[in-house]
């Protein structure tokens, strides 16, 4: 299987640093929370949460949202998706929310994420941060405000974010078919 590294561990470090500082340019985090989409978006959101807390020296809320029950492809898939845990131990009513996911492709997961988010209250605003933006492949009018890396890919290709939980680093690969 042909594969290509889109982002290695060192680049991932730099991207995370840049995204953290970009967030700080726009938010003072007095009224802003992070919400990652399970599973990898949440993992990724927690890394950003740690960096922000180290810089600001104060706690920042970070929730994990599972969108399985809000997807629009239920009963249209061969195999049902197993749900992950939703961990939203705070209220988002009137808060600014940064929604975080690993890869933005068709935009349907983010659409489901917005729907799932609204079940937890009415946020003041929602912005989107993604590690990888597969531009030109959108099926819904959804655009991210904060982007780790934009890539041009063909729709049959597959972008996989491979996370190493212990070292908290990450690699992004592009495959020409769905990897096993």
């Amino acid at each position: 299987m042909v594969s290509q590294i889109l982002m290695d561990e060192a680049q991932f470090e730099r991207v995370i640093d840049r995204l953290t500082h970009q967030l700080l340019e726009h938010h003072d985090f007095s009224n802003t929370d992070l919400v990652g989409l399970q599973p990898r978006g949440y993992w990724f959101a927690q890394i950003i949460q740690q960096r922000l807390q180290a810089i600001l020296g104060k706690p920042i809320f970070c929730g994990g949202l599972d969108v399985t029950f809000h997807r629009d492809d239920f009963r249209r898939r061969e195999n049902p998706i197993s749900p992950s845990l939703t961990e939203m131990p705070f209220l988002i009513e009137g808060r600014h929310v940064i929604m975080i996911d690993d890869v933005l492709f068709t935009g349907r997961t983010i659409r489901a994420g917005l729907d799932a988010l609204l079940a937890h209250g009415r946020p003041s605003s929602v912005q989107l941060l993604v590690l990888v933006d597969r531009r030109f492949q959108r099926e819904l009018p959804i655009e991210p405000q904060f982007i780790g890396k934009s890539i041009d890919s063909i729709d049959y290709q597959y972008v996989k974010v491979i996370c190493d939980e212990t070292s908290e680093s990450c690699r992004v690969m592009l495959f020409n078919e769905k990897p096993a």
Binding site: T68, H70, S82, L85, T86, H120
Partner: peptide, 24 residues
Amino acid sequence: ELIFQAAKEFKEVINRPIKKVPSL
């Protein structure tokens, strides 16, 4: 196991302020 795993998630759903998901 599969039913219990999904039930755990649904228990979280029915304890939310908005206790409804659009799956069905």
